[in-house]
Design a protein around this nucleic acid. Structure first.
Lengths: 189, 189
DNA sequence: TACCTTCGATAGCGGTCACTCGCTAACTTT
DNA sequence: AAAGTTAGCGAGTGACCGCTATCGAAGGTA
């Protein structure tokens, strides 16, 4: 016999898991409360006991995704390995969910406002992930920052395209070219 | 007294103009047939005399955008000027509309299918725009192709971010860094 | 045990969506 | 000028949206 708290967290977790899954599979507009509830195995009324509005549910999912992605950034990789890891992170379902929400925020002022804290968390994550690409002990210059902003933005843009038009044959070659492109900047003092 | 054909093209043009405007301002999901009709000054029933479904209207708008962007790619620019022009094109309202539709296509199979021809046109446009970045008379190698794919994808991804989180202070610096990054590759034989 | 609170299910409400239908008016053909 | 075709209108239609009111079941407290 579970406690009330256990019941509560179990259903909210199920709802957030379902929200992520539906966002990933069907996109923002088709992520209806009914679809989420069906997937979570919760009745439609049950959702609104834990989240006052649909938007609150989506923002909670965004916060959870951003915080989860903050963790597990491995260190000590060389440049190419680091890029590979970064690309995988950026193409992960979690990042698709994230883009789905950020994209919707462009034309939804209230969503954009509620998403702002999670957006800051996301930026912290990308900076941390990117920091692991430079050998430890070396100082960071303005040039490095800019080069790495380019890398991250490129990979993020590439991921968006890859989800509509995948091109696995060229993936590895492009990544090597990217590494060659930024290596001089990263390894200079 | 206009002919039937003139009347027809006038209203379809008004509808497509309105579709672009609403897509740009309110996004894909909020681009309802009612909103488009109101903006175009056409009754709701009138729309369906020219476009059998909402999707057909959106695809027609996409085709028109992609074809329009194919034109006016100036030649003879140096690298930095070329990048500036490319970034402006990629940040234009037309490209926002384009991204709005491509993004929606990720989770809408029928839209993705109908959008495929326009997507090929779009790729032709980006290749043409990017070809102007290399001095005329120089042959194109595989390395150049890959480097320029990176440039275009980066700028496209940057544009997507810029619409949610603009950062004009760093825009110019980032563009110069990008030019420095790819210049060695472009100017080598 | 008796009482209270919270959770989750069900039915349904008001609103909006894409799309249809019946119609008038305008253009085209004969 | 008569007949036929097409453009455009706007009130509907059923489906589905986010959300709420109500209620039985289960957990917590005395």
């Amino acid at each position: 016999m579970p406690t009330q708290l256990e019941r509560r967290t179990a259903t909210t977790t199920a709802l957030l898991d379902a929200t992520e899954a539906v966002l990933h599979e069907r996109g923002y507009a088709a992520t209806t409360t009914a679809a989420v509830c069906e997937r979570a195995g919760v009745s439609q009324g049950g959702l609104f006991r834990h989240f006052p509005t649909r938007r609150a549910l989506l923002v909670a999912a965004a916060v959870r995704v951003a915080e989860r992605q903050t963790h597990d950034v491995p260190a000590g990789l060389d440049l190419l390995e680091g890029l590979r890891h970064l690309r995988a992170a950026v193409r992960s379902p979690a990042n698709v969910v994230w883009h789905e929400l950020v994209h919707a925020a462009r034309t939804d002022e209230e969503l954009r406002r509620d998403l702002a804290p999670a957006l800051r968390t996301y930026h912290r994550r990308t900076r941390a992930a990117v920091a692991s690409l430079r050998p430890a002990g070396h100082p960071w210059t303005e040039t490095h920052q800019t080069a790495l902003r380019i890398v991250v933005t490129y990979l993020d843009g590439e991921a968006a395209v890859a989800h509509v038009l995948p091109d696995p044959d060229r993936d590895e070659a492009t990544l090597r070219a990217l590494a060659d492109l930024v290596r001089p900047l990263l390894e200079q003092p």
